[in-house]
Write a protein that binds this DNA or RNA. Sequence first.
DNA 1: TTTT
DNA 2: TTTT
Lengths: 175, 175, 175, 175
Amino acid sequence: MAQRGVNKVIIVGNLGQDPETKYTASGAAITNVSIATSETWKDKQTGQAQERTEWHRVVFFNRLAEIAGEYLRKGSKVYIEGALRTRKWQDQGGQDRYTTEIVANEMQMLDSRGGSDDSMGGGYQNAPSRPAPAQAPAQQGGGAPAYGGGRPQPAPAPAAPPAPDMDSFDDDIPF
Amino acid sequence: MAQRGVNKVIIVGNLGQDPETKYTASGAAITNVSIATSETWKDKQTGQAQERTEWHRVVFFNRLAEIAGEYLRKGSKVYIEGALRTRKWQDQGGQDRYTTEIVANEMQMLDSRGGSDDSMGGGYQNAPSRPAPAQAPAQQGGGAPAYGGGRPQPAPAPAAPPAPDMDSFDDDIPF
Amino acid sequence: MAQRGVNKVIIVGNLGQDPETKYTASGAAITNVSIATSETWKDKQTGQAQERTEWHRVVFFNRLAEIAGEYLRKGSKVYIEGALRTRKWQDQGGQDRYTTEIVANEMQMLDSRGGSDDSMGGGYQNAPSRPAPAQAPAQQGGGAPAYGGGRPQPAPAPAAPPAPDMDSFDDDIPF
Amino acid sequence: MAQRGVNKVIIVGNLGQDPETKYTASGAAITNVSIATSETWKDKQTGQAQERTEWHRVVFFNRLAEIAGEYLRKGSKVYIEGALRTRKWQDQGGQDRYTTEIVANEMQMLDSRGGSDDSMGGGYQNAPSRPAPAQAPAQQGGGAPAYGGGRPQPAPAPAAPPAPDMDSFDDDIPF
DNA sequence: TTTT
DNA sequence: TTTT
């Protein structure tokens, strides 16, 4: 029992600010970040370059929240995979409000080169497919894969196959 | 010039109601739908089955909006690919409010079998990567692909490779 | 430590044949299916409708393999999420060969309506991010989510925000 | 008419070598790269760190091929979105062989910081959803978006909603 | 080998 | 408001 339908978000962008990490009473970490993606285009009439930035609220739980809080910084470039979740809350006037967030279940830091001293830059993921927020610090896998000896081997770049016959490509297609 | 970062959403779910289609002054269609995804789990203490439904606002523009408005119905199952966009608006009290939507750029209808009379069930996509909302009815592709004669052939199922040696798999790994 | 980079495939298509399930010495299931996706277009010169079908080899392990083997059939429509894996093997002449497969880690059956007797149609996923093939029948989560009492509520469709002012859309843009 | 089903690949990884660009008789660029993703884990018995690298063949056409050929280098980190395509070819012995590639339709360079002088690092995409390989240098969109004056505004990070009541989270759930 |  |  898990999922009915698919609810998946993939974001690559930069943090607008340092992450903010809080802890639940039980000690589970919750980290929030704001990530920008943008698109640019030329205005058709003026020819001016235009830009529109979209800000994404991303929330991490448990072990992933700890990693995000520790390694991400304002300006960090990250890959995030997660699910959409719209929360209801009340404003001061008691009115219902809604906020849509991305609940992250995987993260890849993408600028280890530009980082200070971190020799890593890898990817992390939370336990799968449980309705977030989960509470206790996730016991992350620990799963030892244990390939058998005669397992299917990974495939080191095979010798390149002959290129398709490019001369036979249709020539005068204007697109 | 197009995108800085990645802003991608993939949804598979069912429409909660019939689509609503409007038209701009210039005749461009805009269709809104609400799509449900859900996750289910067993309550740890009570053992009771639990369910949480997430509702996604999806907006289509132009040609895709016309197709969505014509073929989708309450209960329809669809695959949607799009981008997140948060819009600002003012409520009656003049206060700023924000609504997050998925701007669809691809749609696949997934229940042609269960449908009434629709003899289709294929996929559609809008022109790529322009800041939505776009205005005029999209001139969809028109792109004629035109493979040359000697192009690389599609690959009909190759003879199955020998299965990996399964007996050598590690046996007693408890996960 | 899990992933460096992202290796993700998403497929929606139909099975060309019934699934084939095998078992390792340790009892772990391995199911193989072949899934078709296709694209259609009009030939630019002749105006003839064209179609190209792509066949995807998909392999499931453990619990997911059992479910796939039991519920999928020739013609079934499925959503698959997985990772690419290229395996090396030797043909009869002792030559190295390579086969690329999708190792599934999530599956959604998409045609419960059209199905025969299956009263389900939900989604399933394997344990995350361990190098496949894994061995023993996966102990799937068991994870009880356990929301606290005051947890953030799911958000039932908020009152619709006012539509963007469509009359102000640019009118005569020919795309 | 476009797609039946979904055939989508998302890769984030590093180039193993410099790209190789060729041109068709008609002048269309075709660029091939090999991109590594990897997963690491600890061997359950020995406790040794293990790593498995997957190599992905990626092919770009037209304008995207030119950009990839010009800006990517051995070691470059990229985000690629594309579709799987398995090509059939004959080896010297006349035997049928199959090679699976990712036909890229979007690319994001992810290491502008580490780059030499490139002040960019943005994303690019080819025209959508036409059966590749296409022939002539793609006329990329040219689509001017042209937002009207009163268009829905982007949403600058809204004031944070109150955090969910974390103290009420269930406390002693061991997962 | 699927699907429309 | 959907779906099972």
